[in-house]
Write a protein that binds this DNA or RNA. Structure first.
Length: 255
DNA sequence: GCGACAG
DNA sequence: ATCTTGTCGC
């Protein structure tokens, strides 16, 4: 799979101001409505007979690191079954800077996408989408570059505030993540994502919620709906877990 | 100046 | 993200 919109590719050689300008452009190009052609009801890990049609191809993307090199892994799944796994090893050009993650990991991820033989219907990224200072997090930036429906799943909140306290919530619970003054291109009370409790035990330990946000071509409620359908018995969605495990596996072969 | 900050 | 042993519990 190759970039549909190469003009938005995250170039690590840009200076900080240029990176931020590109992020504003990416946010303007992003579509946060449900602009995809599959039925969310067909996104599932099982093989229920209730499914109405072909189950969409879902990609999980994750990275592992070895010094100044990144291993980007993509695992393609259909109805809970892994159908393809690819990875790429590339040099890292810049350090991790909050808000500029796509410029550090974008290159490696694009390299991995080029190895993919089929195009996914939905991509799940490890990181934020709209929950970002310029609403152009990793999931949004790469979703726009490939013009593919995408969602961002983060383990921590980058910016914005949750509408309610998130501590000790039951499985399935969710609340809005609302834009605060740090989100430069959002209206004060814009809902930019959800805190979603994908897993919780009856007793200890207390599990923190996931922070889900639209990447591209997906709305806030649908992003969380899709993620909930991709979570099995664990906190993280299955495509993400598969990509994480594969990235570690591939990393081991290069170490 | 102070605090906050995905992976 | 990564560096890491043992340990508690289903």
């Amino acid at each position: 799979m190759r970039p549909a919109n190469p003009e938005f590719l995250p170039d690590p050689a840009l200076d900080r101001g240029e990176m931020e300008d590109l992020q504003f452009e990416v946010a303007d190009a992003a579509d946060w409505t449900d602009a995809f052609d599959f039925d969310p009801a067909n996104v599932s890990l099982g093989t229920e007979a209730s499914l109405t049609g072909e189950r969409p191809l879902v990609a999980g993307v994750d990275q592992a690191f070895l010094g100044e090199e990144a291993v980007s892994a993509i695992v393609l799944m259909r109805g809970g079954e892994v159908v393809e796994r690819v990875h790429a090893v590339t040099d890292l050009d810049i350090p991790y800077i909050p808000g500029l993650l796509s410029f550090r990991e974008g290159g490696p991820i694009v390299a991995a996408f080029e190895q993919l033989s089929s195009d996914p219907d939905l991509v799940v990224f490890d990181g934020s989408g709209r929950i970002h200072f310029r609403q152009a997090g990793l999931a949004t930036h790469l979703g726009v570059v490939f013009d593919v429906p995408s969602v961002g799943v983060a383990k921590n909140l980058l910016c914005g505030r949750t509408a309610e306290d998130v501590d000790g919530r039951p499985e399935g619970w969710r609340t809005d993540v609302v834009a605060d003054s740090s989100v430069e291109n959002a209206a004060p009370e814009d809902r930019i994502g959800h805190a979603y409790q994908s897993r919780q035990y009856d007793s200890e330990p207390i599990i923190n919620p996931l922070y889900v946000s639209p990447g591209h071509r997906v709305s806030v409620p649908t992003a969380t709906e899709l993620v909930s359908r991709l979570c099995g018995g664990y906190k993280l969605p299955e495509p993400t877990r598969e990509a994480d495990a594969y990235a570690d596996e591939a990393k081991g072969e290069y170490a």
